[in-house]
Structure formats: C-alpha cells, structure tokens
C-alpha cells in the first residue's frame, strides 16, 4: 500500500487532487481512498489530504502517520507545518517549485505546477489550478499511469488544457 500525504492551502485544489488520484488508481483496477483532514480551516489555511492506494480493499480510516510520499503544493505551508513528520526513511517528496529543494536527504522531485498552470492560463477565481498538472507529475513518478491520469482528469474537468497541463508536468518533473 502506498500512503500519500498532500499539503496545500484551502482553495488550491488539494482535495480534488486527492480524489482524482484515487479515481486514476481505481480506473487501473486498484483500490484507493482519498480523505481530507477537516479541521476548522477556512480558505487559505493549510490543509492536509490523505491518499491510499493498494491492490486490496482498504480498511484504514485513521490518519496517515508514515507516508511513502509527501506532496507540497504550496511551499509556504512549510513555515508552519512540519511536512516531513513521520515520513518513511525512504519516503519521497514532491514539491511545487521551479527549483530543486533539499528535503533532509529524502529523494525530492520538483516541478513548477504554478508556472505550468499560468502558462496555459488555467486560473479559477484568481488561483492557478495545481491539481491537474500534479496528476502528470505523479504519473511520471509511477504511482499511476499517464493514461489513467488522463482519464481521471477528463472525468473531472471538461477543459482540454487540464490534460495538457498534466502532460507538461509529466515532461518537466525533475529530481
């Protein structure tokens, strides 16, 4: 079972990203759950979402304590949140950043999701859409195939630019 923890801010699409990843996994015949951790958060506050992917039905409902992968959609949450908390020794990190970031020696991938969204003018209510390009990066990292990512995006959004954004992130992801 892969356990993924996604850090974002309210309104950045982290919850939808988690659902799309679960959908992509389910389309491949796997089992998946996606769950935001709800507190009293409001728009703009740090939010955590959990995604589990497995070959067998998933019975866990408690929070993920030892993630295999930590995703950071907004690096500013790292000022107040220890995003690496509990990460497995070999756990990987994926960061929305144009530049490499040192995450205490953990294998860290970066891609400029914000830049990709802005380059395609994928903006809703003034915020760049980060979740669809994120799907491309996750496909590149091997959690799901690009085909199922494409399918999940198309089931969720009608605008073709979302798949294009995923394609760009797939190509631009760097370690």
């Amino acid at each position: 079972m892969y356990e993924i923890r996604l850090h974002s801010r309210g309104g950045q699409g982290g919850v939808t990203a988690a659902k799309m990843l679960a959908l992509a996994a389910i389309r491949e015949g796997k089992f998946a759950t996606a769950c935001p951790f709800y507190g009293a958060e409001r728009r703009g506050a740090p939010v955590v979402s959990y995604i589990r992917i497995d070959d067998a039905p998933i019975k866990v409902y408690s929070q993920i304590r030892q993630p295999d992968l930590v995703i950071v959609l907004d690096m500013s949450v790292m000022e107040t949140v220890d995003v690496l908390q509990g990460i497995r020794e070999d756990g990987r990190v994926l960061i929305n950043s144009p530049h490499p970031v040192d995450m205490q020696g953990h294998p860290t991938y970066h891609v400029d999701l914000t830049g990709i969204a802005l380059s395609l003018n994928l903006v809703i209510a003034g915020s760049p859409i980060l979740n669809t390009p994120l799907m491309g990066a996750l496909a590149k990292m091997g959690y799901v195939t690009f085909d199922s990512v494409k399918g999940a995006i198309e089931e969720t959004f009608s605008d073709d630019r979302n798949v294009e954004a995923a394609q760009l992130a797939y190509e631009e992801l760097e370690r």
């Binding site: 988690a18 659902k19 679960a22 389910i26 089992f31 998946a32 759950t33 996606a34 769950c35 935001p36 709800y38 998933i58 409902y61």
Partner: peptide, 8 residues
C-alpha cells in the same frame, strides 16, 4: 471519517 472520504 466516512461522509467525506472518497472511495470506489
């Protein structure tokens, strides 16, 4: 725990 979790 269940109302807001996404599953198949």
């Amino acid at each position: 725990a269940l109302t807001h979790i996404t599953q198949s």
